[in-house]
Simulated scan of single mutants.
Amino acid sequence: MDQKIIGRKEKISLPELGLRLVWAKVDTGAYTSSIHAENLEVVELDGKRVLKFQPLLPGHKAYTGDEVFFEHFREKKVKNSFGQAEVRYLIETTFELAGESYSAEFTLSDRSKMRNAILLGRKILKNRFLVDVSKVNLARPYRTK
């Protein structure tokens, strides 16, 4: 399988979240990927339990304020960047990077104190990408082909 070379920061799209070409930090130290989410709430919709939230922070360039709904979600115990275990919601969604579309899991968390609202962990990267930490936006040439 051909691995594409990406940089330490890349622009990705998350169509099911209504996000197009948003900066994401590539973090080979993190296992799972995560997205900043606001106003997370499990609600009942047409007799089903659904996770409702707003992706990104108000003030983020790509923030729309739109609520998104996920029927397929679960809770997962993860270690945060400070090494403390916490329970987060996990969704499976499609992300687009380097001209390709992939299915991947993202945890939803409060990343308001972090510089990047989206983090791509090594579970997503494995067997798909090689990371050149000295560069950013290397996926762009793949997108324009």
Rank of each mutant, 00 (worst) to 15 (best):
Q3A: 09
L125S: 07
V131Q: 00
K76L: 12
S34G: 11
R88K: 03
S34V: 03
F73D: 15
K52F: 03
V26C: 13
K61F: 12
E105V: 00
F106I: 01
I6G: 04
A98Q: 04
A104Y: 00
A62R: 11
L138T: 08
K123C: 10
F106T: 06
F129M: 12
F95S: 11
V50I: 08
L57A: 14
V26G: 14
S81D: 02
T64I: 07
G47P: 10
P141M: 07
K52R: 15
S101F: 05
P58A: 11
L125M: 06
V68C: 13
Y89K: 05
L14P: 10
R128D: 12
G65M: 06
R20Q: 14
V50G: 04
K9Q: 13
R143A: 08
L125W: 05
I91V: 08
S13H: 08
M1D: 13
R111K: 05
E71G: 07
R122Y: 09
Q54C: 14
L17V: 06
G121H: 00
L138A: 07
F95L: 10
D110E: 02
I6F: 03
R115T: 08
Y31T: 14
V43I: 15
E92W: 00
L130M: 11
K52N: 12
D110Q: 03
F73Q: 13
D46N: 15
L21C: 13
K61D: 15
V43Y: 11
A117H: 03
S34E: 12
P58W: 01
R140D: 15
L138E: 07
L19P: 09
D27V: 05
S13V: 03
D2C: 06
G99L: 04
E100I: 01
P55L: 02
V68D: 03
F129S: 14
E86Q: 05
V133R: 09
E16G: 09
R140S: 10
N137T: 07
P58E: 11
T93C: 10
L14C: 13
L40H: 05
L108Y: 03
K113P: 04
T28N: 11
N39F: 09
F106L: 04
R111S: 04
I6H: 03
S109T: 08
V133H: 10
R20C: 10
A98K: 01
T93L: 04
K61S: 14
G29D: 07
G18K: 02
L57P: 08
E86D: 03
G83W: 01
D66K: 14
K76V: 09
K48T: 05
T32D: 11
K25Y: 00
N116R: 04
A62Y: 04
V50D: 06
I124Q: 15
N116L: 09
R88L: 03
F129R: 12
P58V: 09
A98R: 01
F69Y: 15
G18L: 01
R143M: 12
P58L: 06
K9D: 10
S112T: 10
K9H: 05
Y102I: 02
T32A: 14
E10M: 10
R8H: 08
D2V: 13
I6T: 02
T32Q: 07
K61G: 11
L40C: 15
V22K: 11
L45H: 15
G29A: 07
A24H: 00
I35C: 02
T28K: 02
R143I: 09
A139K: 00
E67K: 10
L108N: 08
V133I: 11
V78P: 02
A24I: 01
V133W: 00
K79I: 00
L40Y: 05
E67G: 09
L119Y: 04
Q84N: 10
Q3W: 06
D132K: 00
